[in-house]
Design a protein around this nucleic acid. Structure first.
Lengths: 331, 331
DNA sequence: TTGTAAGCGTTATCAT
DNA sequence: ATGATAACGCTTACAA
């Protein structure tokens, strides 16, 4: 059996209150008592029970993170940044990967609502959880519109979409395809599509957005890209919705002997440290992951303090100029 | 204020016990009471307080995960797999990224020991925490020797090192360099080095292992690889300690106009889904992440049930044959 | 079939 | 400067 406060108290011949005071540096204590208690703690190898504290304080110092998957580098780096910053503020992190499975997602929400976490940062992309009763739990969303009450942290998706499209156009691409997620989802990423389409039209080009579901497998996706090149043989530019897709397109192009950038210009999205170091040649739009994490925490803390917040926080993106988007030999 | 059990009880004109029974399907209840209670729960939008339950049950249903960083795809995918499997068993996951910072690591351990988690899966790589008092907490380690009492789950590092080295040798490389972590660390990954060195010697080749610290930055690492090519102009093969390093070497080689695989053969390590899909050309050794996760959980559960376990569980690796290791044109 | 009361391990109020 | 006691919200013996 683990020793508890009471055991320490008995061992040191003092009351539980005194031990608690020593533990928390509260009230007046004689040095003698302090030493005695500390010695007892030492001798019994006592560790306070966090759960009992949580119950009394009605505070767990845990923040929930709900993301599709940390195996995706964007969310992995985001989770990493959040965990790091939260740790510095004294919070621990309970993580749930919903895999965009709405059952798992609402299940998690349900459980986390039960006083298990002090706040929640959500980055999943599912429909149909809007109507949830969140009243008790401070939440912020990253790149995802949950409902009117929940502030959204996002990067400047419109600007990102415009930047990506312009890079392709400026280097001579005309038949540019854009891949994006399901249009029904209320996500700020939809603005990328809008930016792409508007930018194309502004240059008298015809936009062509291909919708890809989130959960399709690597193999299926590969097949879709294969078919894409068959269906639109004239493609000379692609603005992919993320770097993983861009990498896959790069692969398909290679297998089909389509040279990048000579025959095809390509721009990805996200620009994680990971993909930039593995695939530095890939032109991409960098989302400011660290700043997004910082902002998410700042806003969450405000919410936890019952302070007012804005509904939306938009952070600037930057262009990573690789050589998949300029017509100079890549190799 | 959130409603509590007592509020529900009052609302339904029953005792707390009855409400608790309804909540947990225990004992004999009349259907009428059940309905009445459920209605009250509904009307008050009641959610049980998890922390109070945890205190009573002395069980949190939380497993702690302590890894260097989920931003690294190997740990990201491992964390992902663990979270998924644990979720199915009814556990949630508290994650700590130590960044190989031993202060943060022991800090986490300290906190998690305090009845906060039911078990712990550790994958960090630090010295000096051996002497910790883990008696109360079931722990398993992944790819890391903690102390005699803690079972280790690992992939077959010796076989992996041998496989990697042989691929290079079989395709004609002679001046092969191997990069590895600090030699002081008690990690099973050291066996990779051993396998490399023994395999080299068995083929009358001279092993040359370059030690790289974990926490050096991308830029520093790049410089080290640059210098490597300067110092050993005759290099015709590299067995990198992980795929991220291999990718960086690929990049440096390209910048120095060293052709892969014509001038240089390269093998990485880890073979995550992520790197295999982004960089399918890279020959690498695949660690069986999913099986490792499964095994870690099985063993942890045994420990939690106070059952006996082995000290070491070794899982087989496989070779991913890209074309950075065979002397046929890569592009 | 339902209720009373004690207990899980802390912290804080109020005495002394 | 220290102690007795109630409270945090739940579950379960035990009683009725």
């Amino acid at each position: 059996m683990r020793p508890k406060l009471e055991d320490v108290a008995k061992h040191a011949n003092v009351s539980k209150t005194t031990v608690s005071r020593v533990l928390n540096n509260r009230g007046y204590l004689s040095q003698k008592t302090i030493d005695k208690v500390n010695q007892a703690i030492e001798e019994l190898n006592y560790q306070p029970n966090v759960v009992a504290r949580q119950l009394y304080n009605k505070k767990t110092n845990i923040i929930g993170l709900l993301f599709p998957t940390v195996a995706n580098p964007f969310f992995g780096e985001l989770a990493e940044a959040l965990e790091k910053k939260l740790y510095e503020k004294g919070y621990k992190v309970l993580i749930g990967n919903s895999m965009n499975d709405s059952k798992k997602e609402s299940d998690y929400l349900n459980q986390l609502l039960s006083e298990q976490v002090d706040g929640l940062i959500v980055g999943t992309h599912n429909q149909g959880i809007q109507e949830y009763k969140y009243e008790n739990l401070p939440i912020v969303a990253i790149d995802r519109v949950m409902n009117e009450d929940i502030p959204v942290i996002e990067s400047d998706n419109y600007q990102g979409g415009k930047l990506a499209t312009k890079v392709l156009i400026d280097h001579g691409a005309k038949n540019i395809i854009h891949t994006n997620g399901p249009i029904e989802l209320e996500t700020p990423a939809k603005r990328r599509r809008l930016a792409y389409e508007e930018t194309m039209k502004a240059h008298d080009l015809i936009p062509n957005t291909v919708t890809l579901d989130f959960n399709i497998s690597y193999q299926e996706k590969k097949k879709i890209f294969y078919d894409l090149f068959e269906s639109y043989p004239g493609i000379d530019g692609i603005f992919a919705s993320n770097d993983m897709d861009a990498a896959l397109i790069l692969q398909v192009a290679k297998e089909k002997n389509i040279r990048v950038p000579e025959d095809l210009l390509l721009v990805g999205y996200d620009g994680t440290l990971m993909t930039r170091s593995i695939l530095p040649d890939l032109t991409t739009i960098i989302q400011p992951i660290d700043e997004m994490a910082e902002m998410a925490i700042t806003i969450l803390m405000k919410r936890m303090d019952k302070k007012e917040t804005e509904k939306e926080y938009i952070l600037p993106v930057t262009l990573w100029q690789g050589n998949t988007s300029k017509k100079t030999p890549a190799n």
